[in-house]
């Protein structure tokens, strides 16, 4: 019974996403689901460990290019491609993580931004022979059908992406409730105390960095398979703030914040870009307004209201277990 209570929120959220597919365009839904996975990694870094990174496009590109290299040069199975992308993100995170997690706050944000710039120029100018520069790698026609869910068909890719996103969300939910999740929150605000309780801040942060960026690489690999194409634009530093914005918009540190943020951001982008030419400027102003009105983000503001509405709980001081 407890297990059901634990799971029902996640299942309901993804059931709603699945149902939305019937009345919302498929490309929009696919983008929302992949962007949700992208933002889940960023949300974990900011919300749990207190690391703001403006270099997430770099990790997205690591996953996307690792997957693309496999599908362009070596194989044709998209599932293997996604696994290669995840592995690529994992290896890169393990290599650079020990260097980066020693930094805090603004230094961490900027060193990641620098990484995104490096990756952008590597893919665009330095490694042109293998990345094909701005032309990118096109491999849609090389991707073969997979048994069960055929990822070459957008409708079936959506189901696959939804299952992957659900698994990632459930994994983060588990982490939230683990001792490790509590240690992440603890190191975020009081590393001295955690150290003198006998925990190792460095390994806790390193693991968080690896988990979050491997998730980001997974999103990158899924973008690669879905689009059948990757280009340096994916690592563009001009898109560095996107996952951070989505995280803040949805609600930092909340389980469903990345999904809500991805729906809101992609929705705003789609709707407003059709109506206004300089849509990014308008979205900028809109975001400033939302942040000022609801600094907890959309889900962070709505969740307590929904809880009260649905369960008619008495208004008490906030407790840590609410989500």
């Amino acid at each position: 019974m407890n297990a059901l209570k634990w799971w029902w929120g996640i299942l309901l959220a993804f059931a709603l996403l699945g149902v939305s597919r019937t009345f919302l365009p498929l490309p929009f839904m696919n983008e929302v689901v992949i962007f949700s996975i992208y933002a889940m990694g960023c949300n974990f870094l900011i919300g749990r460990v207190g690391y703001i990174s403006f270099g997430q496009p770099a990790y997205l590109a690591f996953g996307a290019y690792a997957c693309a290299f496999y599908l362009f040069y070596f194989g044709t199975n998209p599932l293997v491609g996604i696994m290669v992308g995840v592995l690529g993100g994992l290896v890169v995170s393990l290599v650079i993580g020990p260097l980066f997690v020693r930094l805090r706050s603004d230094y961490f944000a900027m060193v990641n931004l620098a990484l995104a710039v490096i990756v952008f120029y590597l893919t665009q100018k330095v490694l042109v022979d293998i990345t094909k520069g701005d032309n990118g790698l096109w491999f849609m026609t090389r991707i073969t059908s997979t048994p069960g869910l055929d990822l070459t068909i957008p409708g079936q890719f959506f189901i696959f992406a939804l299952i992957v996103a659900l698994a990632v969300c459930a994994f983060y939910k588990y982490l939230d409730d683990s001792i490790y999740g509590a240690c992440c929150l603890a190191t975020k605000i009081n590393e001295n105390k955690l150290q003198f309780l006998g925990y190792d801040n460095f390994s806790i942060r390193l693991l968080a960095f690896v988990i979050a960026n491997t998730t980001t690489a997974l999103a990158g690999a899924m973008y690669a398979v879905y689009l059948g194409f990757v280009s340096p634009e994916m690592a563009s530093p001009s898109r560095a703030a996107d996952p951070v914005i989505v995280t803040l918009l949805g609600g930092v540190g909340t389980l469903f914040g990345p999904i809500v943020g991805a729906i809101a951001y992609t929705g705003m982008k789609d709707v407003i870009s059709k109506l206004i030419g300089n849509w990014e400027l308008f979205i900028g102003f809109l975001l400033v307004f939302i942040m000022l009105v609801a600094d907890q983000g959309i889900w962070g503001t709505l969740a307590p209201l929904l809880e009260k509405l649905l369960w008619r709980r008495k208004a008490t001081l906030p407790v840590a277990t609410k989500r």
């Binding site: 509590a182 929150l185 009081n190 105390k193 840590a320």
Partner: peptide, 22 residues
């Protein structure tokens, strides 16, 4: 610590759990 040093973003019981677990 001289100044009260706790994990303010965790519940009371989770603070105790972290100490007990270690």
């Amino acid at each position: 610590f001289q100044l009260t040093s706790t994990f303010d973003n965790l519940s009371v019981i989770d603070n105790l759990v972290l100490a007990f677990f270690r």
